[in-house]
Nucleic acid binder design. Structure first.
Lengths: 210, 210, 210, 210
DNA sequence: CATGAATGAGGCTTCATTCAT
DNA sequence: GATGAATGAAGCCTCATTCAT
């Protein structure tokens, strides 16, 4: 059976092509938007024809789904890896997630922005699947906050869900303005934000100095 | 010339009509997206015809510009009002801006989301104008942080620009999830976020307890 | 309200345009088939643009629906007119329906053939509606046969449903071959077929001659 | 040369494959239509690939031609077998043709409907070939009627061509509604229709009863 | 024999915008 | 001021067919 003989090879080739399509369209979707990017444009950039595109993707929407799902799954996986570590404190884990998200901007800023902005173009079922993953990410985050409270690392007075949304806002927003190759490094930004999250901006030393 | 005789009255009427168009399209643009909302749809909801639309707006894009600019100008104005107060400390002003932004969600969530997501459909010149206003809002915010540092209210070690982006992220993100008529009130959320920004989440009492 | 002032006039104009579209596409659908006729072709023949077509019809399928429904409704109406006559015998009514159907070929052959062949392109709901009308036509026909049996005009041994299908077959088939402007007239063909239906082809005189 | 060594064997295999393609596509063409059935669909149902299809058929149209021709040839052959019998009367032969056509529905309804509906997709030359066969079938039928008249079995007043079309209509139409496995058997239907054709529906006994 | 990637042409549909009335 | 018919350009998608392997 040919499937058994060259199945891997052609599967591989198909994946290579799909990867090329994804890479090209991430660039375009981020710059111009999903609706504003025509399939014609994607294939022109790639130097193939529309037929080729539709050989690999049933629809433009399916391509968007792939981009969104792969983005979210990657994020969930990285989060999982961090949370599973039993040696680290919640504070350390919080730092690692923040750092992971900031570091992620370099490789995934475009995907992330596509995810945030274009998700609504997905069909109901795909949308449900993706929203479930997004919710999972947030709930794991929140569980970390709750664990930190339980362990006495974080203030007992916190409202875990609101605080989680707030923390998420800080890093998510970075995807819109942070330039990973600019003056400030990813580590520095992660440090700044973890400090903001843990300690806030109020000057506690001011009283002593006076 | 009618302009001279009843100029005010017809200007007023034109504005009323424009307001109706804006109100209707904000609803649609937020729910379905700018590109996904056709002029046909807008006028159908309003019970008028396309001719009417194009009498008041040169193009669909001009309508979007109006929405975005009016959103941003309103925000700038409210910010200005808060910052001009010479009696209040920087901490108090920070609180007021956060509260203003959260409170704003009820009336302006849709406009805000349109602003964030659809801005890219504007022509270069409109885009410049709007980005300038957005930058101004952020710079005023940053100046408040810097003033707070200078006055010893905020830590001297802060990186004002990054911190400003972080603080902005917290509230901006709320526009995507916060339900003003849900369980938690706007005041409560503002309190939580100002506390997060000022004091962070670390439990400082824990040492005493040990 | 303009609707009240010129409503009739623009409605009329819309109908004129719809009629032109229908007329043009009946010609093409019959000659080439529904799927094989592109909207492009229809509008080219009409000398308008595709936009115009879609101003009047939501889709190509809706046009087909209009053609099919109007064909069937017209038929039902004519059948109704014949059946309602209380003076005539069943035999006379049978003759009139056969004659009506044959006469109808001249004006409606193309519609009829489109109806028979292209109906399957309609959406489920339209299909149901149309099939209901077709069924009604057949049931009225069958009721006429049953009435004729009851009145002693037709043989008591007949199987009304099968006979109805058979009679229908005779005239329906004519739509595929009969040329109304050929050598044989519509009246003559109707006479031939009614004689076939009533008396059959067997030579009953042959015995006497022997 | 393999042709010389195992020519028969591979010819046979090719025929087997062609038969499978035909069987599969008859099913699909009848259910969805010729144009509406893609080659992709046919090969998917068969579990092979497009390459295989195009190895056996030069084009989709050639496949349709095969289906139509084989349908018509089979019919002609069966008709020929009946007509050649020198023992039987014209009335008996008429009965046998009607019965043959009705019986044929079970095995060939789909082919027949494809023949009627999709013939127009054939190229001019194929079309000529097929129409010639269809004409031959009808002419043989008509010759039977004429012979019956000459032999005194059928009325001398009949118009053979019109009557032939009428008789054909009765059975052809059955292909659209008759369910061979329904309540009424093929024999019963053939009996009903031959009785209709020979004797008509008029009640001749009614006078006696009065 | 058979695969399956790729082409290219064409189809349906949408829509911002214009313009005569 | 407002209508609504019409345009024209563009978009998504399908599919028979080819061809290198």
């Amino acid at each position: 059976m040919p499937q058994l003989l060259n199945g891997n090879k052609s599967l591989e080739r198909a994946n290579i092509m799909k990867e090329r399509i994804i890479k090209t369209s991430i660039e375009l979707f981020d710059r111009k938007g999903f609706k504003e990017t025509s399939v014609q444009e994607i294939v022109e950039v790639m130097g193939v024809t529309k037929g080729a595109f539709y050989y690999y993707y049933k629809s433009k929407e399916e391509l968007l789904k792939d981009i969104c799902i792969s983005y979210m799954e990657d994020l969930l996986q990285q989060q999982q890896r961090i949370l599973q570590d039993k040696e680290k404190s919640c504070t350390e884990k919080l730092y690692e997630i923040v750092y992971m998200l900031i570091r992620n901007i370099k490789a995934r800023r475009k995907s992330a922005r596509i995810f945030f902005r274009e998700m609504r173009h997905l069909h109901e079922d795909h949308l449900q699947e993706i929203k479930a993953k997004r919710r999972a990410f947030r709930e794991h985050y929140q569980q970390l906050i709750e664990a930190g409270i339980a362990r006495g690392e974080f203030k007992p007075t916190l409202t875990p869900d609101m605080i989680t949304f707030g923390i998420l806002g800080i890093t998510n927003w970075s995807y819109y303005w942070f330039q990973p190759d600019g003056e400030i490094s990813e580590e520095a930004l992660a440090d700044i934000y973890v400090d903001l999250i843990l300690n806030g901006i109020k000057n506690r030393e001011s009283f002593k100095e006076k």
